[in-house]
Design a protein around this nucleic acid. Sequence first.
DNA 1: ATCATCTAGGTGCAAGATGCACTTAGATGA
DNA 2: TCATCTAAGTGCATCTTGCACCTAGATGAT
Lengths: 139, 139
Amino acid sequence: MPRRGGRGYGAQGGCRRRIGRFLEPCLLLLLHAGESHGYELLENLDRFGFSKNPADSSTIYRILRSLEERGFVTSMWAEGDSGPARRVYTLTERGNFYLETWVMDLEETDRILHSFFHEYHKHMEVHHANDGETDKGKE
Amino acid sequence: MPRRGGRGYGAQGGCRRRIGRFLEPCLLLLLHAGESHGYELLENLDRFGFSKNPADSSTIYRILRSLEERGFVTSMWAEGDSGPARRVYTLTERGNFYLETWVMDLEETDRILHSFFHEYHKHMEVHHANDGETDKGKE
DNA sequence: ATCATCTAGGTGCAAGATGCACTTAGATGA
DNA sequence: TCATCTAAGTGCATCTTGCACCTAGATGAT
């Protein structure tokens, strides 16, 4: 029954949870704990609980490059004792500040989210209180 | 100093807070309270606390159209007693279910967000506990 | 030796989401 | 008649993302 044809808003179906660029602060936090490379960071991301919708490696590598272009991390090639060479990223001081602004930003997101839940539950209470009396006219 | 040139990930600057399609559940909730039209919904959105980054009207109208294409709302033209005609939207039963799934989805988002804060504060505690001793090698 | 597999880091492309500027058009009052 | 408010859009450029695919060193099995 969905029969979603076009290519506008919502065309890809589902109601996918997504905080835009949420991977970015996660990577910054991991790098705050110490330098690392893309592949390793990718594996450590599951610490943040998005088991469904696991991150795509291409996204990770692109975010790391973007962080470097903006001066939030630096990178160097490093030969490991096994496997191919790795590009090892290190958080800069600017990157550290950037992480701080991300945290404040996410706290704001959290507040907004809770104002939604508040509105939702407030409304649902009223809605349920009216059940059995004014049930007509809805649904 | 930012000097962000290209057009890759993060090229637009800032660390914009954004929950993808967060407007959608807000509109659904407003419509759950009763039928309404785009312009009115736009004005009622500030109830959800995103005073900065207020919603763009084009986005609202596009979301409403998309909701209709997916069968979550229906619309009718209505002549008001003043001003131009309005397209009045009504939540369907399917839209009601969709709102429920959105709420569960946002609760998951909330959990992920808090697992980030948890990691952050846990890490920062250790980091600060080491201050003055192992302060070298970082920054 | 050569083949599959794991590690590591990418690129290309299409689709989706979004902000900004702009348009249309009825109603209202100066 | 002209500006303004209400209402609903469209067009375009840009950003973001998922998927498929590619390169290439290292390692172990046959």
